[in-house]
Design a protein around this nucleic acid. Structure first.
Length: 270
DNA sequence: CGAAAAACCTGGCAGC
DNA sequence: TGCTGCCAGGTTTTTC
């Protein structure tokens, strides 16, 4: 389910566990994208969750023993909250993080996600090479423009590369490029500063709006299949092949870039 | 080295 | 009803 807004929405839903004691973890299936380390359960047992934060698409639990749990949801992962008096499992519930009254359940059919334990977040291999947060000042037109200049790939792949900016996945890449009126196949090094300004602004706007509507789904967070996500966000191009462009009334086209479905308007996006 | 393709998995759906 | 093939919101690993 996750691009950055969905991860952020998930984080906000579980933020209430900050300050709580993680009584116990149960790993039912350790075979995720990478195996959950041996000793995970004993390492996190009875630790206070001192902070809950997000970096890129990773959710990070800071524990009182100075260890950190890192969670990535992959393509199909989600977290949900369940009451401990409901002994309710569904297929692909892999890990439980159990608190006094409630527990957080990690479910992931495709197991592209993962859960890690590390002492130093910033040295972790999945974290250390990440690019700027899209909603921060570190993601700005000037720096993005100079990075684009040094790239030979197309702008859509460039935008989805987490070294250049984090959090933008396949859906919001198409949506951002539509809003910025840039053709997804265009070489990154062909973008001028004005185009970069539009794209950076578009990316921030899309992500902020998606987070905003994601927040409205929080009330559904308890239901097993009520995962917050894309269904509330109004998409201009993604999944709309053959439909009418909301801007110019030509039809939306679909192509494949880097093995990923890509949607755009040939008329609006130059 | 950077860029492009393959790989990791399961489930849902269209088409036969 | 099956069965088959294709598609899916990510990112690492392998190949060129």
């Amino acid at each position: 389910m996750p691009e950055l807004p969905e991860v952020e929405t998930t984080l906000r839903a579980i933020k209430k566990f900050k300050g709580s004691v993680l009584k116990e973890a149960k790993v039912h299936n350790k075979n995720l994208r990478w195996p959950v380390v041996d000793g995970f359960e004993s390492s996190v047992k009875e630790q206070v969750v001192e902070n809950l934060e997000r970096r890129a698409k990773y959710i990070i639990f800071k524990l009182s023993n100075n260890k950190n749990i890192i969670i990535h949801l992959g393509m199909s992962g989600n977290l949900r909250i369940a009451n401990n008096n409901e002994n309710f499992f569904i297929k692909h519930d892999h890990i439980e993080l159990i608190f006094d009254d409630e527990r957080i359940i990690y479910n992931d059919p495709r197991r592209f996600g993962s859960m890690h334990l590390t002492a130093n977040i910033h040295k972790h291999k999945l974290i250390k090479n990440l690019g700027p947060e899209p909603l921060s000042e570190n993601f700005n037109a000037e720096d993005f423009f100079s990075a684009c200049n040094n790239s030979k790939t197309n702008i859509k792949s460039f935008l989805m590369n987490q070294k250049n900016v984090v959090g933008i996945g396949n859906i919001y890449a198409s949506e951002s490029l539509f809003l910025a009126k840039i053709n997804p196949s265009k070489n990154a090094n062909k973008l001028d500063l004005e185009a970069c300004k539009r794209l950076v602004a578009a990316g921030k706007q899309i992500l902020e709006q998606a987070i905003e509507v994601g927040g409205t789904t929080l009330k559904d967070f308890y239901s097993a299949d009520g995962s917050p996500g894309y269904f509330k966000f109004k998409l201009n191009v993604y999944g709309r092949e053959g439909e009418i462009c909301n801007n110019c009334k030509n039809s939306i086209h679909k192509t494949v870039i880097n093995q990923r479905a890509t949607f755009f308007c040939k008329n609006c996006q130059i």
